[in-house]
Amino acid sequence: MLCDDCQKRPATIFFKEILPKKTVELHLCEECAQKRGLATTKKMSPIELLQKLLKEKTAQDAQVICSGCYLSLAEFKRTGRFGCSKCVDSFGSYIKNLIKKVQQSDKHIGRTTRPGEKKGMEIFKLRGQLKKALESEAYEEAAKIRDKLKDFGVENVE
């Protein structure tokens, strides 16, 4: 479908306004929609914006490598997905600008996480030990492991 106004470019923006006595329907290209001040009716979603921005490539992209997971910036631009928690810093100012455009913000102001001693790994190991102890019928040993787990606030140990 061609643009109603210029009849040259393909129409990409569909505009519908329901007025008291009639319905106005317009099919416009981006340029003509902007002239009429209607372009804002079609806002790009963050995902569409990301996909568009990732298409801008440079010759150096393959040489920029993340120190944490060895993902190259070129690979990132192909998939739009980070490989580890260090990627954002490894790709530095490129990511800063990208995120600012996609998210319309450059700073997190929400919840945080408390760093510190995490018991997950320890619980994981103890549960493994408990399973083994029970299998080999070492009940005294199992009772000790249960006590340790209780110290971590774990009650639900079958």
Binding site: P46, I47, L50, G80, R81, F82, S85, V88, I95, L98, I99, V102, Q103, H108, G110, R111, T112, T113
Partner: peptide
């Protein structure tokens, strides 16, 4: 950036 996710969005 807060909590890091696989996708920037």
């Amino acid at each position: 950036y807060g909590f890091l996710t696989s996708c920037p969005t």
